[in-house]
């Protein structure tokens, strides 16, 4: 299995197992796209079915959501820098930028938790109506992904500190960077189709 080792190119692509893991993760992301597409479709079908609960237009706060969006977009950018540092062979740069990425991600999560608590105080919960169920589950699933991503990245930071850059650790970092960018893309769709449309309709 470790037969076809390459001598040059990015570390994470050098072993055949590394190449297979990366391809496997791309396929996993395809499955994730289907998962989120189903949630978006559910949201679209249930849009406007607020029953007696307040409508999204009454509750959504553009400023909070805009801050969240920028936090996550910047974290995607810093994550790109982290991988760039990895390619340069700098463990220190990689760890630094990865930590910055995680701090931004934690900021995003903090705002999301604040947002959910705020809505609960305004009287909407998961149980309020079909629309709010789909809202909380769609955004919550994204938030859960971010949470898991942060936990996962912390495990990788420990491994990087212990082992430095090897074909295995760099593969793991590259894969989590794919995951992180993917969550960013999903958020852009949530921002536009949930928040922007929800505020004007």
């Amino acid at each position: 299995m470790s037969a076809h080792e390459l001598k040059s190119g990015p570390l994470e692509y050098r072993s055949s197992q590394g190449r297979m893991n990366i391809l496997g993760f791309w396929i996993f992301l395809a499955a994730e796209i289907v998962l989120f597409s189903t949630l978006f479709a559910t949201y679209a079908v249930l849009f406007g079915r607020t029953a007696n609960a307040p409508t999204p237009g009454e509750l959504f706060e553009p400023s909070t959501v805009l801050v969240m969006t920028f936090l996550l977009l910047i974290s995607s950018f810093t994550c790109g820098i982290a991988v760039h540092e990895m390619r340069r062979g700098s463990v220190k740069g990689l760890i630094t930028w990865l930590i910055i990425t995680l701090v931004l991600g934690l900021g995003f999560l903090g705002f999301e938790i604040y947002e959910f608590i705020h809505y609960t105080h305004e009287g909407v919960t998961l149980q309020s109506s079909a629309y709010w169920s789909s809202f909380f589950i769609l955004t919550g699933t994204h938030g859960l992904h971010v949470t898991l991503g942060i936990g996962w990245a912390i495990l990788l930071l420990i491994q990087l500190a212990k082992r430095g850059l090897t074909p295995v650790t760099s593969r793991k970092v590259f894969i989590i960077s794919l995951y992180w960018h993917f969550l960013d893309v999903i958020w852009i769709f949530i921002f536009t189709s949930v928040y922007l449309i929800g505020m004007v309709v």
Binding site: A51, L126, Q127, S128
Partner: peptide, 20 residues
């Protein structure tokens, strides 16, 4: 989540949609 946590995706209350 509908059954255990009381959301309204496929229910007859709260404007849920069983056909979905």
């Amino acid at each position: 989540i509908d059954r255990i946590f009381g959301s309204q995706f496929f229910t007859l209350t709260g404007e849920g949609m069983p056909m979905m």
